[in-house]
Nucleic acid binder design. Structure first.
Lengths: 209, 209
DNA sequence: AACGATCTGTAGTGATCACTACGGTAAGTC
DNA sequence: GACTTACCGTAGTGATCACTACAGATCGTT
């Protein structure tokens, strides 16, 4: 049963992957509106009817692109669980920087969708925002682990600042190309976030005393 | 002569402004591809032929939107020229934060265009990248004023980091809405950039000794 | 061999795209 | 009043949009 279904769908799965590959390329070049089914069809060599057999509509296709890109991006790094806080932050920022260099499609397309504010929100955008919110929560928890005496507002600020830096540096790399040393900048950013944590912890203690 | 030309074009100038208003709204909602001439025409109440009388083509229209938005954004803030470096940075970040809150169209549309990498680059995107490069140079010069002993690479890194923070925080505000306190985050970022300057200056001196 | 499920190929649908041809109108110039 | 300039309105152009109807093709199952 498992064997037959694998064989049955072997061709289909390959086609699905080809379609997603093409759609990923085009969407991260031209955004949501710029990704036409015709273009995707031409680039992957399959007719439009095949695309619509695998995906309900254009929105579903782009959402699937986001989902797959995010999965790949996630699997490219992991949260370290030992060492000093400084070491762990340094290790994590390095991994995120590397993951962004190796599979930038996820964040590029995600940011393009996030910046758009169309009247009817496509599911693709919703999906990215959901993923992003999840990441924000994890960042907040990591911050709480490292400096437990911060209050809720400070933790939010810290997580937001950390993610904003990552977004901004990614954009700098996308625009600046090879002239931007992403790992070095991420390293700097990691240290800045730790400093910010210390600074915020200080002002929290000042308010308490 | 000047009077007549003013009177002659009075109606036209108003129409041009109405077209730009509508195009700005739509473009910052839906991006380049999502901005259709038909939609702009409906929103500004003028027929497509009027749009094409005022602008050569869609690309020219969007480029004009960028240009006007940038002008408005620029006029919303100025570089302070007195006080300690810390004060000047704090003042500047505050003004930039306020300008971004009041006229976010420029950066939102600009970032959307910058993230796209279409085969044939529209002039609108080129124009934004040019404006951005100019800002980067000014940031670099400001950094050089404040810590003259930094080497070229460190200055580039600092300017890139400062701009990346601004971009990232702007995005956080766009996505997070009212739950994001942009001035507070910009204030934090300003202090972080100063700390980064000190840190980079230190490592420069270490290398020299 | 017969059959149903999975996928592809052909050939469209009406809607919307960027853009234009062209006549009309109002105002300024002479 | 004749003429030019500046701008708007009507009504299109062919191309491309997302999407679909439907007839094969290929396959494992029976």
């Amino acid at each position: 049963m498992a064997d037959t279904s694998r064989r049955r769908r072997a061709n289909g799965e390959a086609s699905r992957a080809k379609i997603l590959d093409a759609a990923t390329e085009i969407a991260s070049e031209r955004g949501y509106e710029g990704t036409s089914i015709n273009l995707v069809s031409k680039r992957c060599g399959l007719p439009a009817s095949s695309i619509y057999w695998h995906f309900a509509d254009k929105d579903d296709l782009i959402a699937a692109v986001i989902e797959r890109s995010f999965g790949r991006w996630l699997s490219a790094w992991s949260v370290p669980d030992d060492g000093t806080p400084r070491d762990r932050v340094a290790e994590m920022t390095m991994q995120v920087a590397k993951a962004l260099l190796e599979s930038p499609d996820f964040l590029r397309l995600g940011l393009m969708l996030a910046l758009e504010r169309r009247p009817v929100e496509p599911r693709a955008r919703e999906m990215y925002l959901q993923v992003r919110a999840q990441a924000q929560i994890q960042l907040r928890e990591a911050a709480m682990d490292m400096s437990p005496d911060l209050d809720a507002a400070a933790l939010d600020q810290l997580a937001t600042y950390a993610m904003a830096g990552a977004d901004g540096l990614f954009i700098a790399k996308e625009i600046g190309g090879d002239s931007v040393d992403l790992p070095a900048l991420f390293d700097l950013h990691g240290r800045m976030v730790i400093d910010a944590a210390l600074r915020l912890a200080e002002s929290t203690r000042d308010e308490d005393s």
